[in-house]
Simulated assay, not measured.
Amino acid sequence: MVSPKVAVVTGASRGIGKGIAIALGGAGYTVYLTGRAGSEDVASTPLQSAADAVTNEGGEGIPVVCDHGDDAQVRALFDRIEAEQEGLDLLVNNATCLPRALVAQGGFWERSLELADMFNVGLRSAYVASAMAVPLMLDRPQALIASVSFFGAVTYFHGPAYGAQKAGLDKMMADMALELKPLGIAALSVWPGFVKTEMVLQRWSGTPEGEERLRTYESPALTGHVVTTLARDPELMSYAGQQVIVAEYATLHDIREPDGSQPVSLREKMGDPRPFHMTHSI
């Protein structure tokens, strides 16, 4: 009997991380979902709920309380996986610090310095998790490290701290890909569009302006299905080091939203100058 593939999705209590974890569950993965809330805290409910959703889809969801700003907790996570599994097939770096100051008014010098926390949980945390994951990925076919980034890497969005974090993440994945290719491990960035996360829905639902805005937003499930398809794509290694735009990859592989609609790429609107995967066309 073939053992299920094993994945780690960081920051999976809600939003894009949860959407990715659930999609992987539908593909039969054993998924370790991380979140910061303590298991005895009422706030832990979203993490457990996300893990249950993975299991309900046919996989196995394993919730793990983990603060990705604490290296010891991250080490404990990967030590646990090493003890419980034969290896690791997929790491999704999604955990990101989102300070309230991110949407505050004013220049970066007028806003809280907590914005720089994104360099810790968001950039450094992806480096740490990737470094700890690679030893568990050796000799695993189609092993993949996918980091969730955004168009803010190449255009102004939420200010310099946010942009630098995303640009740094993309560069880091590109450089990791060069070192990992000889080992048969792919590393890449995934760029969703604007996504209907719980936070976004809370902010924009219920008004004509908000509903019109949400009409063009992607579901978290879309990124989930793209990551799941990428992980089993026979041409996965040809994407290594690149920035895979969710809407464009979805169009290429006829991956649709739950309502059957086709997502639209933000490339033109957000000003990304780089071509999507030179060997592929849409």
Rank of each mutant, 00 (worst) to 15 (best):
A177G: 09
P160Q: 03
E179F: 11
G184F: 15
S149D: 05
A167T: 00
R140L: 12
A143T: 05
A133L: 12
R140N: 07
A186N: 04
G152L: 12
K181A: 14
L188S: 01
A161V: 15
S130V: 10
V121A: 01
Y162C: 05
I185H: 04
V154K: 00
R140H: 09
D139N: 15
A133H: 11
D175G: 01
M176E: 02
A177N: 07
S125A: 12
G159E: 11
L188T: 04
G159I: 13
L183Q: 13
A164T: 15
A167H: 10
L169P: 10
L136E: 07
A187R: 04
V154H: 07
A167P: 13
A146G: 07
G168C: 12
G163I: 06
K181T: 14
P141C: 05
A161R: 00
F150A: 12
V134R: 01
Y127P: 00
P141F: 11
V190L: 15
G184S: 09
M137F: 09
K181Q: 12
V134W: 03
S149N: 09
E179C: 06
S125F: 11
L180E: 08
Q142P: 00
D170I: 13
S147P: 11
A164G: 15
F150W: 08
L136H: 08
M132E: 11
F151P: 00
V121W: 06
A133E: 06
A164P: 11
P141V: 07
F151W: 12
L138V: 15
G184I: 13
G152T: 00
A161W: 04
I185K: 02
S130W: 10
A174K: 09
S130L: 08
G159A: 10
Q165R: 13
A186R: 01
A129C: 15
I185S: 01
A186V: 11
V190Q: 01
A187K: 03
A177M: 09
D175Y: 13
P141D: 08
M173W: 06
P135N: 03
A186I: 09
L136W: 12
A177V: 10
I145K: 03
D139A: 15
Y127G: 02
M172L: 15
V148N: 02
R124D: 04
A129F: 07
L123C: 05
G168R: 12
Y156L: 08
K166E: 05
M137C: 07
V134F: 05
A187V: 07
D139P: 00
M132H: 10
K171W: 06
G163S: 14
A129T: 12
M132A: 13
K181S: 09
M176L: 15
G168M: 13
V154M: 01
I145P: 10
Y127N: 03
K181W: 12
V134Q: 02
L178F: 12
F157W: 12
S125W: 10
G168V: 14
A177I: 11
V148T: 12
D175F: 13
F157A: 03
A143N: 03
V134L: 05
L144T: 01
P160Y: 06
G163Y: 09
V154E: 02
W191G: 01
G152H: 03
S189T: 14
V190N: 00
A161Q: 14
